[in-house]
Amino acid sequence: MTTPPSSSSPPLRSSAEQLGRDPGRPGAGLTAYVLGLADDALVSAQRMGWWISRAPQLEEDVALANIGLDQLGQARTLLAYAGEIEGDGRSEDDLAYLRDEREFRNVWLVERAQTDFGVAMARLLVFSAWQRELYGALASSTDATLAGVAGKAVKEVAYHLDHASHWVVRLGDGTEESHARMQAALDAEWPFVPELFEPVDAALVAEGVAVDPVALRPAVLARIEAVVAEATLAVPQVAPAVGGGRRGLHTEEMGYLLAEMQHLARSHPGATW
């Protein structure tokens, strides 16, 4: 699905318009959808990168780098595609480095800082279980590009899910201390699960382009709950967080993440690297 490029240079936009880059434009819905998936992967990769040189053991430095690299790869392909659909000539780097916080569409699950290995694994379990179902379904999207990206990514996230599951089970069913810490980590991440299942553009779902997140819920939860049970942990009973990432509403931590990620690129406008 493509959009004709805009004929004139865009006028100054209000911040509401910026969120959707002219929501009325043809293709704006698809651009927003693809950006959501891209930003989830990008922001998750950004957080994953922190672990390289900080993991509990050397094998884990390697594994987390691998996972981060997979996510970054997914983000790059999706961002490039979003730029293409949008038709304003924005590259993957323009979209990653030159958008402001309110234009990012990732869920809250991936954006918060984390320095606890249990939290990192709880989050990866949830995120990869969700991505596993999402990409599995998206592989048969009527949009050939999305189907292609998803077909490749589904194998990567299956490995991520496997990796996270192994750790959650080992930590949950390890020592008394690790059991308590893993349960606390799961409790901390659980409020951010429901946002993953917020509905997306119904027209895109009807066309078979997008996957309806609501429909993914049972399978995703079943995957997570099986791991939680094997880990001798309890599925948390906590109220959901407010969320709003898909509408460009983020936690305060997002601004710092972007400040760090974008600072150098923005300090040298027009430079190539």
Binding site: L42, Q46, G49, W50, I52, S53, L58, D61, V62, A65, N66, G68, L69, L72, G73, A75, R76, L79, E92, D93, A96, Y97, E260, M261, H263, L264, A265, H268, A271, W273
Partner: peptide
């Protein structure tokens, strides 16, 4: 891994970020 890992979060393009992550990962290997 540390001196270069110091720039993973700030690499100025996504391509450079990926190359740097892979490099620091190699050093762990």
């Amino acid at each position: 891994m540390q001196p270069e890992g110091n720039w993973i979060s700030r690499a100025p393009s996504l391509r450079r970020k990926a190359i740097l992550m892979a490099k620091v990962q190699d050093e762990a290997g």
